[in-house]
């Protein structure tokens, strides 16, 4: 297993890229809503993503099981 600093240094840029993709998706959705003048009929997938980010940013995760938590969270959305 990599040391803590090495872990961050190794994976930071890839995580940065992935977060930018999520941000771009949310912007894309907002622009589409603005252009079409209406929201998606079912926004559950949008809400699921927003809740997932909230889960990631909130509190301590002593079991280091964020991935498992997210998978369980996403399982609620079809």
């Amino acid at each position: 297993m990599l040391e803590p600093q090495k872990t961050l240094d190794t994976y930071y840029l890839e995580a940065r890229r992935d977060l930018l993709e999520v941000a771009a998706l949310l912007d894309r959705y907002d622009r589409s809503v603005e252009k079409q003048g209406q929201k998606a009929e079912d926004e559950s997938r949008l809400n699921s993503l927003l809740e997932a980010m909230s889960l990631l940013s909130g509190g301590d995760h002593p079991k280091a099981n964020r991935t498992e938590q997210l998978l369980n969270h996403f399982a609620k959305v079809s």
Partner: peptide
Amino acid sequence: PVTKCSPRRSVDILEK
């Protein structure tokens, strides 16, 4: 692939 703009983001920019 990682450090600059991505293909999807490039299309967002083209659309904007």
